[in-house]
Design a protein around this nucleic acid. Sequence first.
DNA 1: CGGGCCTTTGACTGGTTTCAACTTCTGTGG
DNA 2: CCACAGAAGTTGAAACCAGTCAAAGGCCCG
Lengths: 191, 191
Amino acid sequence: MQNQLAAHIRRFIDITDEEAFQIHTFFESEKVKKKVNLLHTPEVCKHNYFVLKGCLRLFFIDDKGVEQTTQFAIENWWLSDYMSFQNQLPGDFYIQAVEHTELLRISYTAQEKLLTEVPKMERYFRLVYQKAAAAAQLRSKYQHTFSKEEQFLNFRNKFPEFIQRIPQYLLASYLGFTPEYLSEIRKKNIS
Amino acid sequence: MQNQLAAHIRRFIDITDEEAFQIHTFFESEKVKKKVNLLHTPEVCKHNYFVLKGCLRLFFIDDKGVEQTTQFAIENWWLSDYMSFQNQLPGDFYIQAVEHTELLRISYTAQEKLLTEVPKMERYFRLVYQKAAAAAQLRSKYQHTFSKEEQFLNFRNKFPEFIQRIPQYLLASYLGFTPEYLSEIRKKNIS
DNA sequence: CGGGCCTTTGACTGGTTTCAACTTCTGTGG
DNA sequence: CCACAGAAGTTGAAACCAGTCAAAGGCCCG
C-alpha cells in the first residue's frame, strides 16, 4: 500500500524512506465496494483519492436524470472533484467505485498540512496536475477530431484491457453517447 | 508588465518585491501581431505563455485540413501545449495570436531553474494547474450536458464581452460545430 | 431458479454537417 | 479616401450521424 504511493511519488521527485513514511501518515486507507459512492451531491468534496487497486468514476446527473461519467481513475491515478475540493464548496459531481476498490485518501486540510510540512510535495502535485492538464488538452483534441464511432475505436485501441473491466453503458456515457449506439458500433466493428 | 504577473502570483502565494523582481528576470516579454503563430507543428513547445493583454488560441489541424480551436487564453491566463512542453517533444498544436497580444514567456529550462531557485513558485504553478484541471472537469461536464445550441447560449451568458472580441468561426470551432450552424443558432436566438 | 439489470434490435426522428452560392464586412494599396 | 479583393458571415437544400423510444433477449447474482 504505502510502497505503491511512494513508488508513484518517486516517479516525479526523490524522497527518502523517512519522508515516505511521514507522507503516509497524512493518508487514510479505505476499501469501497462496487457501486458505493464516496461523494454525493451536493456535498463538499473533502478528499483527494489515490487508487491503489480497482476503479473509480466521476459522474454527475444531467437534466434528464441520466448519469454522465466524465472521468475514470484506475491504479495509480488521482481523482477528485477539483472545483469542489479546492474551494471546499459543494459540488455537483459524484464519485463512485466501479469495482471493489482499495484507495488512499487525503483530506483537504491534511493535504494543506502535508504541503507545508513537506514542501517538496508541492512539486509532486504540481507535476500530477500538469499531467492532468496535458491529458485534458489531448482529450479535447480527440473530441474535436473524431466522430463518436472513431472515438470508440480509438479508445479500444488505446485501452483494450480497460474495456473488459467496465460495463458498456459506463463507457458509452464516458465517450458521450448512448448505450444503444455503442451496441450498434460494436456490431459493425466485430470486436 | 512585471506588476501584472506579480499581482497574479500574489493571488495565490505571498512574495516580496525582491522575489517579484527575481522572478521577473526569468521571463522574456514579447508582442505578437494578430494571426501570427508562436508555435507551429511539429515543433517542440519551448515556452509557457502568460497573456498580459490580448488573446491567444491553441488549435490543431484535423484530418480534413480544418483548424480546430481547443483553448483560448486572455489577460492573466497561461497557455502552452502542455504535452509538448512538459516532455519537450514535438507536439501537434499551434498557438496563435487572435488579437494583437502582449505576453510574457518563460522557456522550459528557465521555468525549471525558476522552480529550483524560488521553490515557492512550485506552489503557484501547482495552484494554476489545479485550477486548469478543475476548469477541464467543468468543461467536460458542459459538453456532456448540453446540446451544441445550448453550449453556445451558455457561453454567451458567461462571457458576453468575449464573444464581441473574437470572430465567430473561431467560437464555432471552439464549441465544436460549424460556422454555418452557429449562424443559424444566432438567427433563432436574436442576439 | 428467478428477477433485475445490462445489452441488443429496429423504426423513427431530429439535430447538425456538408456544399455551394450569395452577401456583408474589413483592411490594404493606390 | 475610395475601390477592390479576400475574408467572414449568411442562407437554403439535401444527407447523415446519432438520439429516442419501446420491446425483447441475455446474463449475472442472490
